[in-house]
């Protein structure tokens, strides 16, 4: 149980760090990284919860995989927008 708790705490901490970064940082790229940190935190929490049983809970694993796909596409869109916004500002 204590390992689960440990990973849950790490996940929550990551999530909070990401949130803090998102709210305080100005630079677009840093904020995108902060968002990904938040995502990793949540996924970590989910994996920690899934690993409580053996074999690990398939539902949560499926959710994490889906979540990763969503996060990747969102990050791609964010990077594209951030890049265009930078270029628009400099030109």
């Amino acid at each position: 149980m204590s390992t689960t708790l440990f990973w849950l705490a790490v996940g929550a901490l990551l999530w909070l760090i990401g949130l803090h970064g998102l709210l305080t940082l100005r630079d677009a790229l840093r904020r995108i990284i902060a968002i990904n940190l938040m995502g990793s935190g949540v996924f970590l929490v989910m994996i920690a919860l899934a690993a409580r049983v053996v074999p690990s809970d398939p539902v949560l694993v499926a959710l994490v995989v889906t979540g990763l796909v969503v996060a990747v596409s969102a990050t791609a869109l964010a990077l594209r927008l951030a890049g265009s916004a930078e270029r628009g500002k400099s030109s």
């Binding site: 999530w15 990401g18 949130l19 998102l22 904020r31 968002i35 938040m38 995502g39 964010a78």
Partner: peptide, 8 residues
């Protein structure tokens, strides 16, 4: 970004 934060 805010929307993603909300989702997370």
């Amino acid at each position: 970004l805010l929307s993603l934060a909300g989702s997370l």
